[in-house]
């Protein structure tokens, strides 16, 4: 039943639930690390908080300021949401092959992520606000800089598995070993780059709240803001599940078993890693972040790829 797969499990509804769950987990974990309680009174332990935020924003007034470019301003959030949802269908969640997969879907995911940056910039630019313009410029600078080490590091697993498809990489890990053991450096690089792609705290330069208010989404309100926040949740899920499928073997458990529960556990661990980093660091300046990406992460990613190529020759 492909239709049921797409709508219910592991399709849209499941992903929506997962996205809200991940936001709640992230907020709760950061609150715990900061010695707070976090959302508490919305459902049991505040688990319904992201859902309540979403519904409230949907019901709020949707303001379109007079100065904005109406078409791009209205289309932007919808396009960004679609583009962040699309790669999730290529992630193997329930079994070792995804809902949709083809040779080269890793490249497709990278392509969609780059496209998303451009749309983000366009919608920031079209809101004609000083803060959102600065935010938009920073989005372009930061995300394009971190895209390069991310792409290079992601070729590591692809070279090991001799395939450019996420599902094949997961199947390789099922038959051989987890790629985290072979390429720990790559895992670290991918984690840092994904943190930057998610614009989470050490890299929340494009939307620095205390400095440029909320950066590129300062003018969005009501439904558009709801969609943008949902996009951020989907991006969190996407980042964590990329880490899971590339390095931790996706839904593969011990003794060759496969279950969505394994995927879920690994996803929770990855999100806890991300929120731990988020609570640990303070924001970098834009020049520091770019210097880090070009000077350190890119060479390290190249070294990782060279190591992946050389390893089989040294240790047969």
């Amino acid at each position: 039943m492909p239709f049921l797969d797409i709508i219910v499990f592991p399709g849209l509804l499941f992903l929506l639930f997962l996205a809200f769950f991940c936001e709640w987990l992230d907020r709760k974990a950061v609150a715990k690390l900061q010695n707070r309680v976090g959302p508490k009174h919305t459902g049991p332990e505040g688990i319904l908080q992201p859902f309540a935020d979403f519904i409230k924003l949907l019901s709020n007034e949707d303001i379109i300021p007079a100065a904005v470019d109406r078409i791009m301003f209205s289309l932007g959030p919808i396009l960004i949401l679609t583009l962040s949802l699309m790669p999730l269908f290529l992630i193997p969640i329930a079994g070792s092959s995804a809902l949709v997969w083809f040779e080269g879907d890793l490249i497709f995911i990278m392509f969609v992520m780059t496209l998303r940056i451009i749309i983000t910039f366009l919608s920031a630019w079209s809101s004609t606000n000083r803060f959102s313009m600065i935010g938009g410029m920073r989005v372009i600078l930061q995300m394009l800089a971190f895209e390069i080490p991310l792409t290079i590091a992601m070729t590591g697993p692809a070279i090991s598995a001799r395939s450019l498809s996420l599902s094949k990489i997961v199947q390789f890990q099922a038959s051989e070993h987890l790629l985290l053991l072979a390429q720990p450096l790559g895992f670290v690089i991918v984690t840092i780059c994904l943190l930057a792609e998610l614009r989470m705290v050490p890299f929340d330069i494009p939307k620095a709240k205390t400095e440029i208010v909320k950066g590129w989404f300062v003018e969005f309100s009501g439904k558009k803001l709801a969609l943008l926040r949902l996009t951020e949740d989907f991006e969190l899920v996407l980042a964590a599940s990329l880490m899971v499928s590339l390095y931790l073997g996706g839904p593969i458990g011990p003794w060759q078993t496969q279950s969505v529960l394994y995927f879920f556990t690994k996803l929770v661990i990855c999100i806890l890693i991300l929120s731990n980093l988020r609570a640990l660091f303070a924001r970098f300046r834009i020049d520091q972040a770019l210097k880090g990406a070009w000077k350190y992460l890119t060479p390290l990613a190249l070294i990782q790829v060279i190591l992946v190529e050389l390893m089989p020759m040294v240790i047969p």
Partner: peptide
Amino acid sequence: ISWARKKS
């Protein structure tokens, strides 16, 4: 909707 408003 009023529940959501109350909660966030």
